[in-house]
Computed example of a mutant assay.
Amino acid sequence: MPHRWADFITPSTLQLSPLLEVLLEPISCAQQMASLQLGLQEVLVNAVRHGNGNDPGKCLRVRRIVTPRWWVFQVQDEGCGVPADARCGALPQEPDALCGRGLFLIHSCFDDVRWSARGNRVQVALRRQ
């Protein structure tokens, strides 16, 4: 199978179910579907809430890339970006911390997580089974 990609631009809202359905449409493996759905939901929610500040006037850009070995998703928001020192996938030290669990989930759901230099675009990838 050759590489296939699709680009999506959507308003920045938390109405993410229709977008998730479209993004996950080519996935048939149930186990990978669950991981991808959880991880992508977290990536998209973070982009809407933290990146675009819940501003529906801003957009999310999403690219889905399907290769013979990988499911790859790039999500870009219009925000300032995640600082380099805050991109780790560790759980926060305090159990009642208001943030940090999302990045832990993202790192747990994907085999590869990469950030743009600015930090407002993340690429997540899961090796296909």
Rank of each mutant, 00 (worst) to 15 (best):
Q41H: 13
E42V: 02
E42A: 04
E42G: 09
V43N: 01
L44H: 02
N46L: 12
N46C: 10
N46M: 08
A47T: 15
V48C: 05
H50G: 05
H50C: 09
N52E: 09
N52H: 12
N52Q: 14
G53P: 06
G53E: 07
G53W: 04
G53A: 13
G53L: 15
G53N: 13
N54P: 03
D55I: 01
D55L: 01
P56C: 05
G57V: 01
G57L: 01
K58T: 08
C59A: 12
C59P: 00
C59T: 03
L60R: 04
L60F: 11
R61M: 06
V62M: 10
R63Y: 04
R63W: 05
R63C: 08
R63P: 03
R63L: 05
R64Y: 00
R64F: 00
V66K: 00
V66R: 02
V66H: 00
V66S: 08
P68W: 00
P68I: 00
R69G: 03
R69L: 10
W70Y: 11
W70S: 07
W71S: 02
V72Y: 00
V72D: 08
F73K: 08
F73S: 03
F73E: 06
F73T: 11
F73I: 09
Q74E: 15
Q74W: 06
Q74H: 10
V75Q: 14
Q76K: 15
Q76T: 15
Q76D: 05
Q76M: 14
D77E: 03
D77V: 07
D77Q: 07
E78Q: 15
E78T: 01
C80Y: 05
C80N: 12
G81W: 11
G81L: 11
G81E: 13
V82K: 12
V82D: 12
V82Q: 14
P83V: 14
A84R: 15
D85H: 15
D85Y: 13
A86L: 10
A86M: 13
A86N: 07
A86E: 14
R87P: 03
R87G: 04
C88S: 14
G89L: 00
G89S: 05
A90M: 08
A90L: 11
L91A: 12
L91T: 07
P92G: 01
Q93W: 00
E94W: 02
P95M: 11
P95T: 11
D96N: 15
D96S: 15
D96K: 10
A97I: 07
A97Y: 13
A97T: 11
A97V: 07
L98V: 01
C99L: 12
G100A: 12
G100S: 10
G102C: 03
G102W: 03
G102N: 04
L103Y: 06
L103A: 11
L103E: 02
L103T: 05
F104W: 14
I106A: 06
I106Y: 05
H107D: 01
H107I: 01
S108M: 11
S108E: 15
S108A: 14
S108T: 03
S108R: 15
S108L: 13
C109A: 13
F110C: 06
F110G: 04
D111A: 08
D111S: 10
D112L: 15
V113H: 06
V113M: 08
R114L: 13
W115H: 06
